[in-house]
């Protein structure tokens, strides 16, 4: 039995503690925010926040995930979207959306640490989160919006 705290609730799951956290979240707890992209820690689609820090759940063993885990589903508070989620909607920052869990969760951890990141800090902080639909420009705009920075309207006519 492994015990873990996810989105404010405690769960006991009967799995091998060496199981990557990702599969427990998805298949035992039925969460669909974190998704498999590479299983190698290279893309970020599986990102969750553990004790405030972004973690790639595909390479964290569930037995070692002892902290407070937040997934995309747990980001909204009392029915209100996280400002990042709202900014994502406002910027229409999504194409297919498969990677966006990683974009949003990594951005959340980034803003937790640095509420007013510069452009360079956003690029650097988000560097390892891949998007094959190439929503990067929009994702960066959404992060700036959520951080309360004016977003340059550069969308043309």
């Amino acid at each position: 039995m492994v015990s873990l705290r996810v989105n404010g609730a405690t769960h006991e799951v009967d799995v091998d503690p060496a199981t990557p956290l990702l599969y427990v979240l998805r298949n035992d707890l039925r969460l669909s925010g974190p998704r498999f992209g590479c299983g190698l820690g290279q893309c970020g689609t599986c990102t969750v926040i553990i004790d405030g820090v972004a973690a790639r759940s595909c390479i964290v063993n569930v037995g070692r995930a002892s902290g407070e885990i937040t997934t995309l589903e747990g980001l909204s508070k009392d029915g209100a979207l996280d400002p990042l989620q709202q900014a994502w909607i406002d910027e229409q920052a999504v194409q297919c959306g498969y990677c966006q869990n990683g974009q949003i969760m990594t951005a959340r951890a980034l803003l937790n640490k640095n509420p007013n990141p510069t452009d360079a800090e956003i690029r650097q902080g988000m560097e390892g989160v891949l998007c094959r639909c190439m929503t990067y420009y929009r994702v960066q705009a959404a992060i700036k919006r959520a951080a309360g920075r004016p977003v340059t309207p550069s969308r043309g006519a």
Binding site: S32, R35, T71, E73, S76, L81, Q85, I89, G97
Partner: peptide
């Protein structure tokens, strides 16, 4: 108009083909 499929994709409520069980 904003895309209808974006809110469920950012709040985690979307059910994807990877979630089919």
């Amino acid at each position: 108009l904003p895309r209808y499929d974006i809110p469920p994709k950012v709040d985690g409520s979307q059910t994807w083909a990877v979630d089919a069980k």
